[in-house]
């Protein structure tokens, strides 16, 4: 039983605790965050935290791997081309890292809000629930917008590559692409 009342899972009903309620000047009571809902919220918060760590870590490792791969091949690249590629890779990697860090901050905030919503001692559990769900929504929208932009950029790149060197791209995508 939370400080606002209890949820009867067998009857599917919410019983507010005596003196708590939206009326009468007490704390605003929304939903009972206990039972299966509380467990689901706690598990979601846990995975949000894991995803918040995994995203930026993967972006950082990718950036490091790309730079190492470029340095390994440096003897095959002209000096000016090497500098341009390193610069482009660093810029692209840092942008990707920044985006993943921003998404991770949103996820971490959502996880914190949802964790507080299921905490027994939390007074404004419904407000924390709304805040957590709101952050999750912003994450979804941001990710969908970035995904749309990435898809458009990928389409433009493929069209450009097909126009510039169609036979090299289709014939041997893992080997020499020099026409």
């Amino acid at each position: 039983m939370s400080r606002f009342g209890s949820y009867d899972a067998s009857g599917g009903t919410w019983r507010p605790r005596e003196g708590a309620g939206a009326t009468g000047g007490g704390p605003s009571v929304g939903v009972a965050f206990d039972g299966e809902l509380a467990r689901s919220l706690a598990r979601l918060a846990q995975w949000l935290r894991i995803a918040a760590v995994a995203g930026p870590s993967a972006a950082l490792l990718q950036l490091v791997a790309q730079v190492i791969a470029l340095l390994v091949r440096r003897d095959r690249i002209p000096h000016s081309g090497m500098q341009a590629q390193l610069l482009g890779m660093a810029c692209g990697g840092l942008i990707a890292l920044g985006i993943s860090v921003a998404l991770a901050v949103l996820l971490h905030g959502a996880a914190g809000s949802l964790r507080r919503a299921v905490a027994e001692a939390e007074v404004d559990a419904p407000a924390q629930f709304v805040a957590g769900v709101g952050r999750l929504r912003v994450y979804f929208l941001l990710k969908a917008t970035l995904g749309t932009l990435a898809l458009l950029a990928a389409c433009c790149l493929v069209v450009l590559l097909l126009l510039l060197m169609p036979h090299a791209l289709v014939a041997n995508p893992f080997g020499s692409m020099r026409p």
Partner: peptide
């Protein structure tokens, strides 16, 4: 990446 000088992105 094959013989030296055949870097995929050199074609760009």
């Amino acid at each position: 990446f094959g013989p030296p000088g055949s870097l995929p992105i050199r074609g760009l």
